[in-house]
Write a protein that binds this DNA or RNA. Structure first.
Ligand SMILES: NC(=O)c1ccc[n+]([C@@H]2O[C@H](COP(=O)([O-])OP(=O)(O)OC[C@H]3O[C@@H](n4cnc5c(N)ncnc54)[C@H](O)[C@@H]3O)[C@@H](O)[C@H]2O)c1
Ligand SMILES: NC(=O)c1ccc[n+]([C@@H]2O[C@H](COP(=O)([O-])OP(=O)(O)OC[C@H]3O[C@@H](n4cnc5c(N)ncnc54)[C@H](O)[C@@H]3O)[C@@H](O)[C@H]2O)c1
Lengths: 212, 212
DNA sequence: TTCGTAGTGTGAAAACGTTAACAGTGTTAT
DNA sequence: ATAACACTGTTAACGTTTTCACACTACGAA
């Protein structure tokens, strides 16, 4: 299978989102330079990125929005549904589930884990909360591949180790801990303070405003 | 002033965080290959990144942790304090303020804005919430340079336009809207669903686990 | 003092990502 | 039918980022 970079994947996700908006708007087709104007990538880059997904547009008409969306989705999510679990069902955890679930038909946050007895066995935002002790069973039974980490700093590494032991392959980490994991596990860190520090730097060191 | 790339800034922020941990641990000095092991950047890259901040280590002893931290901070935050405002003081907004404030002595989220009368003029997590109508006054008076956007999708663009008109130079955007802003405004988008989609992709397309 | 060691700083090479340029191609107008 | 057009797909040039490799240096040991 063709290997593509993080940057390409990130942009494809952005394109898909734009296409979704266009579709909701009733549009049928779109040109690379329009996608470019909206997303900030150059038109050449849009076309080049789309080469990866194996969908061909036509001159004059451009890309059929529906078909292109389908192709991007098939490229990004080969399996029909990817199961996601969230660990730490506090303020942040609940917000994430509320926001994400239902917005991508191939991604489903179907289980939460927490240590708080008040949360265990409750269903919040359509997501069942289990005790941490059930982690292995639930993850293996439901073939969960991706986990979102939203536990306090001091527990993050311990929980990550456990998730890895259960066979998780990717972690979206909202805790401020920099996780140490085996090389085949993909980690995306989303520390909010670091994000703010980065914006603060570039706000004071103008940089052309290129949006990643 | 030396122009450095987004990637360098992101890594410097990561290094600084690690240094902070080391200092809390009572350590005095550190080698590039140790920073490398923790952060995922190669040792050569660590050294190269540090060239930008103008601090020199010594062979055998490596880098003095305290001095290096100071140099990085002087590089990242030239001004003594950078004022930040948050717009949308809901679940997410409150969490962000709670988490970020007090963790970087040069960044301060000192004002919130909301349209909800129940929040206006209340102080939550040490942050005063103002009505949107006071935005221009407060931002200009307090020299706020950076804004965090945590309002619902439908209002995000409108609020961003207003922030730009008030003189904001950088936006950390947690709304799912892709903002259209002038080229000199720096925007960092942090859509949670997109982050999850990215992790889901790389969980299924192993990639060496390189943490960005 | 002299040597060996284990680090740093950095120029040069390699890898990677982006942009430019253009041939090829449906579509439309004539 | 044919020509003009406005786009796509793709190759090659370009620019940026990362790695390599090594001269240099502070220190500790003998
Ligand atoms: N709140 C934010 O916006 C924000 C921002 C940046 C970072 N963070 C980080 O995200 C994490 C969660 O933030 P929050 O605001 O949701 O906090 P929270 O206290 O509301 O939620 C934490 C949840 O994790 C659960 N938990 C604790 N230990 C656990 C364990 N070992 N296994 C499973 N669950 C466990 C708790 O019972 C609680 O429900 C923290 O690390 C925080 O530093 C939060
Ligand atoms: N909750 C999350 O974790 C999460 C995740 C991803 C994205 N988001 C996005 O972040 C935004 C906020 O999420 P939330 O969970 O905090 O929602 P929320 O409803 O709790 O908070 C939204 C807040 O914004 C205020 N608001 C509405 N319009 C405003 C305006 N024009 N000016 C100023 N304030 C205004 C509301 O009064 C409310 O206090 C939404 O766009 C949501 O889609 C949230």
């Amino acid at each position: 299978m063709k290997q593509v970079s993080e940057k390409v994947v990130s942009r494809l996700i952005i394109y898909r989102k734009y296409l979704k908006e266009l579709l909701a708007d009733g549009q049928k087709s779109i040109f690379s330079h329009k996608i470019s104007a909206y997303t900030g990538a150059s038109a050449a880059q849009v076309r080049r990125d789309l080469m990866n997904v194996g969908y061909n547009g036509t001159p004059v008409k451009g890309y059929n929005i529906k078909d292109l969306m389908t192709s991007i989705s098939e490229f990004l999510e080969k399996e029909n549904t990817i199961e996601v679990a969230i660990v730490g069902f506090g303020n942040l955890g609940k917000s994430i589930v509320d926001y994400c679930n239902g917005r991508n038909s191939r991604l489903s946050i179907s289980a939460a884990f927490d240590t708080d007895p008040n949360k265990i066995n409750r269903v919040i935002h359509g997501c069942h909360c289990y005790a941490n002790t059930e982690m292995e069973t639930i993850i293996k039974e439901n073939k969960v591949e991706v986990a979102i980490l939203a536990v306090p700093r001091e527990d993050a590494q311990k929980v990550a180790d456990k998730l890895v032991a259960c066979g998780i392959k990717g972690i979206l980490n909202y805790s401020p801990t920099r996780l140490q994991v085996p090389a085949n596990i993909y980690v995306e860190n989303r520390d909010m303070l670091m994000a703010l520090e980065k914006v603060a730097y570039f706000a004071n060191n103008v940089h052309g405003g290129k949006n990643k």
